[in-house]
Design a protein around this nucleic acid. Sequence first.
DNA 1: TAACCCATGTAAACGGTTACATGATTTC
DNA 2: GAAATCATGTAACCGTTTACATGGGTTA
Lengths: 181, 181
Amino acid sequence: MLGLLAREALSGYDLASRMRERVGFFWQARHSQIYPELARLEGDEMVVHRVVEQRDRPDKKVYEITDVGLEALKEWVTAPVKPRATRDEMVLKAYSVWLADPEKAVTLFREQQRLHEEQLLRYEEIEAWMEEEWGEDLSLPSSPRFASYAALRRGIIHERGYAEWCGWVADRLEKGGAGTG
Amino acid sequence: MLGLLAREALSGYDLASRMRERVGFFWQARHSQIYPELARLEGDEMVVHRVVEQRDRPDKKVYEITDVGLEALKEWVTAPVKPRATRDEMVLKAYSVWLADPEKAVTLFREQQRLHEEQLLRYEEIEAWMEEEWGEDLSLPSSPRFASYAALRRGIIHERGYAEWCGWVADRLEKGGAGTG
DNA sequence: TAACCCATGTAAACGGTTACATGATTTC
DNA sequence: GAAATCATGTAACCGTTTACATGGGTTA
């Protein structure tokens, strides 16, 4: 949330939209988590809000990051990470795929392959758009555009790898050895 | 847990070890989660246990999967997955890296690159061992060895992609454009 | 007039981690 | 004598999701 607010002042509702649309591929939060957290951050003086009155829409609270919040965010960015546990249901399924009906398994893995290939395409379109529109900014480490680009690159590499793996599994299942193991 | 018990009968303690060592890279659970879950699975008739008395060690409860459990597992393997939310702290940091001290950021990303390259090497060693030891079983979709191999392949592709991305970010940060953005 | 978007909150439930608790045996 | 391994459990806490709750304005 601070990472988003460091780029622009946003309401809780805006933050929830960003979580769904832009940064959703690597982090998410629902509005039910966002509103209490904004209150907590304000208590810690990381953010401040002002009420913006609107004619045709409900009023909103627009949150801005403070110097305290910005400093905390800067520190956090380069702070060491403790290795986080990954959980991947498809790998879990792969681990037990020897028990499954191979045809059904192929269907599942092909479906997943397709989904990740589609997502990859979407990311690559955004990548092309960024390179077109943002040009030289993408080589400026102090630009938020560079940072967005870097995050997107992870998405691309992830989807490529995931689709490749699903395809590999499906191929192996299709070639298949003896059905009895 | 059913996926592990389908391969061999295990105690809660054994399950916890497997979660740490073998399947830990794509799924984990602590003993505090495992013991109550085993009781729940037994209530659902997915597993049964017998007490194994040991001379030099504490007695243990060894759990076996039942036909009911095996059927449920088989069904689950090919059942559709609902897209799970990924959360990646490094990508989150990358998204705000434009605010950070570039030198410190390079250190962080190089460190992560190294860690993932090391993990990749470990996986590749296991891969080589599997190919050596398990040979033709690796092309039998009905063999648990094939399934282990498939899961490992995901680990390899993941680590390769992750290390590549960390390196890419660090390279870009080092080349760096103007410091002012 | 029904569906959707904007806008903000609270409450209950769930999955998972950390900490608490106990105790025997083996290895250094 | 201390630390590590084997072995099984419970309790408290925390982050997240789902559901509950409200209400005005716009678009089809």
